[in-house]
């Protein structure tokens, strides 16, 4: 598996291509990053969100991969200003949603409460992002026929961002690549036909 296959999997699992960085290459010249301020509490919060998406099993979970800090780096450096705002606001929204549902904040919730909450948000986010992307793909196709026509994009869903960054960050981290997947830095040779059985891990790279 290479990075492209990871990105394809992330897109399938979240209903849309990776947000941020290299995918706005087809235009959108005025998009740039803004200033974002992550507090230590935000990192701890994102660690728990990541850990709920990719929990510790027989291999380490997303928290052990430092996922909160990774999200901070990627949102700060690779997201556009509108996406950054959605992400930061998403931390607050997620917590409010948890309070409304469980009477306590996400950090205080039990693992079961967290899982139930994020399962619901995940399903909503995926449906939202999929519909948005399909609609906008059509608009873009039509806009491409006319010169200089721009289209207004609706915002991305904050949970799509959190899930994408968790999956991408985890599987490219040391524990994710070497323990949840198989990683061989120096294969030494190529074998085009090796046995595989159900349950065997995929290659990390």
């Amino acid at each position: 598996m290479d990075r492209r296959e990871l990105l394809k999997m992330v897109a399938l699992a979240t209903g849309g291509v990776m947000i941020g960085g290299e995918f706005l290459l087809s235009g959108c010249k005025n998009e740039k990053s803004g200033a974002v301020a992550f507090k230590p509490d935000d990192i701890a919060f994102l660690d728990e969100v990541g850990e709920t998406i990719i929990p510790t099993t027989s291999s380490p979970g997303a928290k052990a991969a430092g996922i909160g800090n990774f999200m901070k780096v990627m949102v700060t450096d690779c997201y556009t200003e509108p996406d950054q705002k959605v992400f930061m606001e998403g931390i607050r929204q997620l917590n409010e949603f948890c309070k409304k549902k469980n009477g306590i904040g996400f950090m205080q919730a039990t693992p079961q409460q967290r899982t139930a909450l994020l399962e619901k948000i995940d399903a909503e986010a995926k449906a939202y992002q999929k519909e948005k992307n399909e609609k906008e793909a059509k608009l873009k196709e039509e806009a491409a026929k006319e010169r200089n026509k721009t289209i207004a994009l609706s915002p991305n869903h904050y949970f799509t961002m959190m899930k994408q960054l968790t999956l991408f960050g985890y599987f490219t981290s040391k524990p994710g690549a070497t323990q949840a997947l198989r990683y061989v830095a120096v294969p030494g040779h190529y074998d085009g036909c090796m046995p595989y059985k159900k349950g065997d891990k995929a290659w990390a790279t």
Binding site: M1, E5, L6, K8, M9, L12, A13, T52, I53, I54, P55, T57, T115, L118, E119, D122, K126, K163, L167, A180, L181, Y196, K198, G199, D200, K201, A202, W203
Partner: peptide, 23 residues
Amino acid sequence: AGRARASADGIGAAFKDAITEAG
């Protein structure tokens, strides 16, 4: 040709197991 990463819906332990296999 290659094998994609297995894809799955959702979050959590079963999701994690599913997406670590070859697809």
